[in-house]
Design a protein around this nucleic acid. Structure first.
Lengths: 115, 115
DNA sequence: AGGAACAGGTAGACAATCTACACCCAAGGC
DNA sequence: GCCTTGGGTGTAGATTGTCTACCTGTTCCT
């Protein structure tokens, strides 16, 4: 287990399967590019969530294939080209689904931990 | 992704890495054998958490190797031989650690989802 | 004799994530 | 002109926990 490493870092590996939900949620705030998503998740979580590029980009491509998000090349405020993603209607459905599953699971775990 | 399956079942695959924590917590209520742990988690979570034997037994063996739990063959009330596990001091430390990480992550996710 | 429930277990596939790279561009300093 | 820093996208390969789908054996009840 990776958890045996001496230094614990707050990678989302602990919550495998929640990255998609987090990305979809981020895109609900407005279109964003990969780098921007990473930063948004980091700052909005109080520096807790660190998404690796090796996790993020495959996830974005996967979600694009599933048509949960749609992409477009644009130029950033820094005048750099970047791939902007926006959430689709299907993505919103997926997000609602993920959230409901997440809430159920967290409640279930809580009922165990607080027993 | 496994999540593409039509029927969603509440397997802990969604929260990969939390099984150890749940098992340790269960053992804090008292020594228990594998089959009993599965049932305890299922009933105490309101039938939400379904731990597969193919996940549980490898996890138990892993945790025994790490000395988080210790095992002993005994006979159940049903007069069947079973391997009873109890949590060790190291296991309690691990549990505290896991819990703290879990709480941090859940709070971080919540801060994203509720933004 | 047969079946349901109890109990432990494994082999092999799967898939998300991580580590560690590579590449390109823009802006600013010197 | 050159170099560094930060922005931005991406992949290959390894790791690893979990799942699916099996198997074995026992006890108890009818």
């Amino acid at each position: 287990m990776k958890r045996e490493r001496e230094v614990y870092r707050n990678r989302i590996e602990l919550l495998q399967g929640t990255l998609d939900m987090l990305v979809l949620k981020t895109l609900q705030w407005g279109p964003q590019h990969g780098y921007g998503i990473t930063q948004a998740l980091r700052t909005r979580s109080g520096e807790v969530l660190q998404v690796e590029t090796g996790s993020l980009y495959p996830a974005l491509h996967r979600m694009e294939r599933h048509k949960w998000i749609a992409a477009e090349w644009k130029v950033t405020e820094q005048n750099q080209r970047a791939r902007f993603y926006r959430i689709t209607a299907e993505g919103r459905r997926q997000l609602a689904n993920d959230r409901s599953r997440w809430d159920t699971m967290v409640a279930a775990i809580a009922s165990i931990l607080e027993a």
